[in-house]
Design a binder for these strands. Sequence first.
DNA 1: CGTTCATTTGACACGTGTCAATCCCAGTGG
DNA 2: CCACTGGGATTGACACGTGTCAAATGAACG
Lengths: 198, 198
Amino acid sequence: MQGESSPFLYTILKGLGLRSVVLPDGQRQVVSLLFPGDFIGLQSGLMTEMGHSIEATTDMVLCVFERGDLFNLFNDHPDRAYDLTWLAAISEHFLGEALAVVGQRDAISRMAWAFARSLQYGRSRGLTTGWDMHFPFTQRDLADTLGLSLVHTNKTLARLRTLGLVEWSQDRLTILDPARLFAIAELPLEMPKKRPLF
Amino acid sequence: MQGESSPFLYTILKGLGLRSVVLPDGQRQVVSLLFPGDFIGLQSGLMTEMGHSIEATTDMVLCVFERGDLFNLFNDHPDRAYDLTWLAAISEHFLGEALAVVGQRDAISRMAWAFARSLQYGRSRGLTTGWDMHFPFTQRDLADTLGLSLVHTNKTLARLRTLGLVEWSQDRLTILDPARLFAIAELPLEMPKKRPLF
DNA sequence: CGTTCATTTGACACGTGTCAATCCCAGTGG
DNA sequence: CCACTGGGATTGACACGTGTCAAATGAACG
């Protein structure tokens, strides 16, 4: 519900979705993909003329907090409040990276970045430990994430496929050539850990 | 100092600057312009391979905090800690808007947006009450903010000038035709208030 | 009075957007 | 069981916005 201030905050327990900004003329920019473990609602509490909105891509299970409880949290559990602020800082940090990629890189590099980061993110949330993961988004979602047109997104994807770097069909994303993909994304290659981080 | 974790946090008391991300190949993306009243350092505490860095454009006067004091703040002044988190949420909100503009809009619209928002921001910080303000950035800064090349930034600026919408020289930005500029930026026109907000 | 950096301008190349048609597939209803 | 429908994916042709290259001008500074 873009433009309305939700009285709730959420943590995603299960499911995937996305957070987006819809401009007055109807153009959509996906601000971030949402994975289990993500905390939503702080930013969305601010609804200006350019509001954020949340979409569930799959069915989701959420942990719901009342916004009013937030102040109590700060009073009773300063360490948790500290963690919360830390989370906000982290997410702002990643947003800055997204802005840099969209602002400075060409299509193929943006897409490589999106795939590489999504996989890393999915790993840190325990969605996968290998080079493939559930990725139920549409090409339109990806286009709006990267600031590209739908058509050009499709053609760029075709290039990545032809190069043998990734495969993406039936809601499943597979990175076939991690080394080269991460090179294009200009991200350091990060091999899967034997054990999840947490 | 990109890539290093500063042990300090800052509030800007005087001066202007910018926060940017420098990609591995040297490309720079300005993440936000910094005005008096801005709080810096939370995001910058996170230094990954794509680090944020801060630049002072003019001489600045800062209020310096030790990062170690932050935890004490959360213990002793939960209301202040709450405000701090709120600030982080606000700045993430604006970052989302910036991403949307860079991702979805053409050059002239991006630039109109940057000018319009800068003026609004400057007003809320008491830098001006009219339609002009001190704006000591270079065209390169603006180009890196909007995700445009330097040359094209210059030509787009020339168009805005020719249209009689803005003037920008000698570190001073003047909005000559607010109504039309805000229309191009697709932002609601906001007239100056008699009194500052705070 | 040179050096350096910011700004400005023109010509041209190229990446990306737009338009339009087709294909594919899942869901739906006859 | 089979049209029929609608949304996503795919492809080609073409237009246009933006990037790149190069050169000139102007302003600040030692």
